[in-house]
Design a binder for these strands. Sequence first.
DNA 1: ATAATAGTGTCTATCAGACATTATCTG
DNA 2: CAGATAATGTCTGATAGACACTATTAT
Lengths: 274, 274
Amino acid sequence: MEKRNKEGLTEKQFLEQYNQGDYKRPSVTTDVLIIGMNKDYTKMKILLIKRGDHPFIDCWALPGGFVEENETAHQAAARELKEETGLKDVYLDQVYTFTKPGRDPRAWVITIAYLALISELQEVEGLDDADDADWFDLEFTDEEIIISNEEKEVKIIYSLKKKIFYNGVIRYENYIPALKSQDSLAFDHVEIIIEALKKLRKQIKYSGEAFCLVDEKFTLPELQAVYETVLGQKLYKKSFRDMISEYVVETGDERTSRTPKGRRCKEYSFKMEE
Amino acid sequence: MEKRNKEGLTEKQFLEQYNQGDYKRPSVTTDVLIIGMNKDYTKMKILLIKRGDHPFIDCWALPGGFVEENETAHQAAARELKEETGLKDVYLDQVYTFTKPGRDPRAWVITIAYLALISELQEVEGLDDADDADWFDLEFTDEEIIISNEEKEVKIIYSLKKKIFYNGVIRYENYIPALKSQDSLAFDHVEIIIEALKKLRKQIKYSGEAFCLVDEKFTLPELQAVYETVLGQKLYKKSFRDMISEYVVETGDERTSRTPKGRRCKEYSFKMEE
DNA sequence: ATAATAGTGTCTATCAGACATTATCTG
DNA sequence: CAGATAATGTCTGATAGACACTATTAT
């Protein structure tokens, strides 16, 4: 015996007569922060595309696109990642959903931000509505965030100010960015980058995110360089090696590290457990 | 000199002629998992409402509602929380955005899930499209998740199976729920509860979420009971007290703990730093 | 009075932080 | 050969885990 609602309709009847009403609906996009390392692991690289149309024409922005009805946001982000870099099956994680009214001057648009980590920078070029696409150096300290590409003579700088706010009785510190350069990022994309980096830094010590940023085979100086670059601080070599020793295994080979003054040393790979 | 796009339009002209196109857009809702503790801190309580219409008629669901154009999702969640419990200025945190196609049989709906923590259970009643609203006991172990209300004779049980999957080279364990009881939750709300609890458990040790679940003034046995109930495991008293000692301060008073066989002991409050 | 809880003391194992030492490689 | 990096040993301090002990309180 099927249940009926107050109007006496079965679920099937209800769904047939259902109409979505005239609630206003937002467009939903995903924006993807794609992070890789430069050749010697001293800097993070992020992929940006240059906008070819209003709004924020000529500004650099995170790659992104609309979520379609028959896919998850994760799939949309993976599709975007693949379109831009050709990569698939890489680390891709939901970061935060940004919903501030007015964040897109065209219309009501919310975006689900994703973080992708890749071990090798791919050649990229502008597509679709993008005039250009390229890898940028990313520096993130307590004082500022610098996104630059020397070749293209672009240097985007935001100064950061810590602001304390409360969630219930819990105290948080948040970075408030303020543009310092001529060049700027489109939309609220600085905030997306900040949130994604905060999350990456929080997780890299206890999850294995760093392993997504090195090659399949790596040396310990390389792996340590990745940790140090992402965290923005030096680590003690011995402590670092103790910490990661249970997650790595020697390949048996030796080679020269890609780190700045790297010399010949043992090569490792990620230890798959059980 | 204002920038013009390829059609020769200024930004102002562009925005005037812009139309959102016929991309299909989803409805966007927030669902809020509101967690409190029972009187003796031995169980978590969550607020559910009983659906009065299709789909999932007569099923219990998380309170939630549409995000409106002039507000953030956080504000929408706070509004929902206030409508249901009358509470404001409590802990409220974004958990995850759920976007699986078909998660709502009526239409394309994505939901931004929030977690709210409160220190005192409020009287609730059904409103709007809800026939009823009430607090449920929540038990969450590695094997199953049980949501029950004796008075209403409702007992919802999902068994949990751990599934391993990979994100890049990183290995994750996830719970896959399977309904075991007659009663069930609406939509994908079990998954929301699972995600929110996972996040709460991860954070409670290193952030101060537990302080949002006790009264302003509390005893250490009470605070420890909250940790143990949320984490689903016993903690050593001495280690626990060492761990939290820097975050609490004696009020000078003494009183009887609300824990099961609690006796008279010192009362504390949360230490606001600097 | 009894039994359980509240509150501390102590010991151990672990681990990050901090140097130091030796071996090895690059230029 | 010189001067770095690679790899490892050792010491210290902080801390979670694990017991044990005393004092206090509810019944």
